[in-house]
Design a protein around this nucleic acid. Structure first.
Ligand code: MN
Ligand code: MN
Ligand code: ZN
Ligand code: ZN
Lengths: 140, 140
DNA sequence: ATCGTTAATGAAAATGAATGTCAATATCAA
DNA sequence: TTGATATTGACATTCATTTTCATTAACGAT
């Protein structure tokens, strides 16, 4: 079963109806190797389903995010692009030029966090880590 | 010399004129222990200078950011808050409840980055790291 | 297969943050 | 003091996102 089928099943289990425009958006996001913003998703989705409205893109994003299937990625150029959600404790490495996104594991911040908690008195509950650079194809 | 005086001097050296509304915005940001968005800054600034316009807040933020005196902080609730810029290689620890911001050093990602470069072929040029939690005062 | 409930759709209008325009004003070097 | 010009705030504009709403479509029940 493909990832988009899995997502569609989860949406249906959650009470959502499966519609053509929704399928288009889901497939785009499940397949994407980069974070896409609502405008980009809309552009791509209307190739599959020309009648789709931008509103439906927004609404589908909202649902997918609520199900933790996608998550918002913050970048210099914008903070409204969405990418397949991390599986467990993963972070993301992004190409600054083409946008290609790769997830990785293995950051080791435990010692830093423990030391900071002791020193500052903060209770640290979450962290954001993102790496930026150039993917192999974009290194001229 | 206070931090806001230092900033004002730098702005003047850069060719900016020192005006009352500008002074108000600069003082707020130089003194703040948390990231503030344009609306919050506007609210506070009009106490000092009731005639100030929101546009001037935006324009002052732009100048301060160009001089690398402040930087934008991304959070769940919004991506348009500004905080005094990092001094060298610092990251930020934020209280999720009250917004209190603390800078810290000592993250050690060299090994991770080197390993990822080797494994993925990416050239990694930058990283974002932010820690979130509860400051001492907000841990009820 | 048909029906009926109601979720979902897209057009259109509304919202609201951020930018652009511009005439009046204030800064500051000369 | 003066004059060039940077800055100001009111106002208009842009544009992404949200809201509204009448119509359509999904799908469980029959
Ligand atoms: Mn981590
Ligand atoms: Mn670092
Ligand atoms: Zn952001
Ligand atoms: Zn690339």
């Amino acid at each position: 079963m493909s990832l988009s089928e899995t997502w569609l099943n989860q949406m249906q289990s959650d009470g959502s109806r499966l519609t053509a425009p929704r399928r288009a958006v889901v497939e785009i996001l499940a397949e994407a190797d980069q974070a896409l913003d609502p405008g980009e998703i809309f552009e791509r989705a209307r190739r599959q389903h020309p009648a789709i409205g931008l509103v439906t893109v927004y609404r589908t994003l909202e649902k997918l995010e609520a199900l933790h299937l996608i998550e918002r990625i913050h970048q210099h150029e914008g903070c409204h692009a969405y990418l397949r959600a991390a599986q467990g404790h993963e972070h993301v490495l992004l190409c600054e030029r083409c946008g290609k996104a790769l997830r990785f594991v293995g950051d080791d911040l435990e010692d830093l966090i423990t030391a900071l908690e002791k020193r500052t008195g903060f209770l640290i509950r979450e962290h954001w880590l993102q790496l930026f650079g150039l993917c192999p194809a974009c290194q001229a």
